[in-house]
């Protein structure tokens, strides 16, 4: 590489850096700042609120720091007041115990509100659908109890319809995250965690596993494609007609450690999700719940009566 080429490369790098730092604040690339549905929107609002409230404290503190450093430097002829024994002031103490208490108080109220809201479906008047998600080493299996189809490493959802994801893992703990639709939830062996998400505009959304699961973890990416209800139904019908079924043999093959391509299946073994749960300790979760040791939702539903159910304490 000659010198000019190197210089050129650095110029490009610098340009991209500067431009991405300053120009692309609302770029699509900032997934969290591009909420595509009500869940992500609520979370985004909370992020903005908390950032603003924090800034209200941080900025004056920083200003004060620089002022003090400038004013009270130990240099000859500094006329600023020097009171070496002044070490106590009730009023000031009250002020700076008070300010954080107020701010934390405000944030607490919003936190509590949103936390409870997010356990409920984002909209009430639309019948939700359910998708069962199993994280495996190292791929994602999506099962549609309503449509009786299954996909690997991608999911399609209807626009404007709340989707309740039931999340579990067939071994390692992962975390299911689609930033533009909303925050993540862990997939854990033996538990069926509930996560409400909803897309309000059609599009393809980036999803990934967020919790480390070993060698192939980096490649656990998936796409969530949101399309209008009619197109979604059309897609499901097409899968039903054209794809092969997910048999136990195929499933066992799929469950082996390794990466997988995008796939779709016209059907899946009944009770597959429940069995995965039970094999991984799900059989104990009910009992623990009765003892009040865990407030995980009950696991032993039949696959078909799960959609649209509201669970307390998710």
């Amino acid at each position: 590489m000659n010198k000019r080429r190197v210089a050129w490369y650095w110029k490009i790098l610098l340009l991209t850096t500067v431009s991405s730092l300053f120009l692309s604040g609302c770029d699509r690339q900032y997934l969290v700042f591009n909420p595509a549905g009500p869940v992500a929107q609520k979370e985004y609002d909370l992020i903005v609120l908390s950032a603003v409230l924090c800034a209200i404290v941080v900025i004056p503190v920083l200003a004060l720091l620089f002022f003090i450093l400038y004013r009270y430097r130990d240099r000859p002829g500094n006329k600023a007041k020097y009171s070496p024994n002044w070490h106590d002031s009730k009023i000031l103490e009250v002020v700076w115990w008070g300010i954080p208490i107020i701010i934390i108080g405000i944030l607490s109220i919003y936190t509590a509100k949103t936390t409870y809201t997010l356990t409920k479906p984002p909209v009430k008047d639309v019948k939700p659908i359910t998708i069962q998600v199993t994280s495996m080493d190292w791929k994602w299996l999506f099962q549609y109890p309503g449509q009786k189809i299954a996909t690997v490493n991608y999911a399609e959802i209807p626009v404007g319809v709340p989707v309740q994801f039931h999340l579990t893992s067939n071994q390692m703990m992962n975390s299911f995250w689609v930033p533009e639709l909303g925050g993540q939830e862990y997939t854990m062996p033996g538990m069926a965690m509930r996560l409400w998400l909803q897309a309000d505009r059609p599009g393809t959304y980036y999803g990934s596993g967020a919790n480390f699961t070993g060698k192939g973890f980096t490649h656990m990416k998936f796409k969530v494609i949101a399309k209008p209800q009619a197109e979604f139904d059309q897609w499901a019908r097409q899968i039903k007609q054209t794809e092969k079924p997910l048999t136990m043999t195929v499933y066992k093959q799929l469950a082996k450690k390794g990466l997988a391509e995008k796939q779709a299946f016209s059907s899946y073994p009944a009770q597959l999700f429940t069995n995965t749960l039970n094999e991984n300790g799900g059989k104990y979760m009910d009992k623990d719940m009765k003892h009040g040791k865990s407030d995980m939702p009950a696991m032993n539903h039949n696959d078909h009566d799960m959609s649209g159910m509201e669970h307390k304490g998710e």
Binding site: E43, Y44, S50, A51, C54, T114, L118, N211
Partner: peptide, 23 residues
């Protein structure tokens, strides 16, 4: 530390944390 503490408060807000966790 002031900035780190502020982002800590942001992380502490459970619903917002769903978006920050493990990122």
């Amino acid at each position: 530390f002031v900035v780190g503490g502020a982002t800590g408060v942001m992380l502490a807000i459970a619903p917002a944390d769903y978006q920050y966790h493990n990122s």
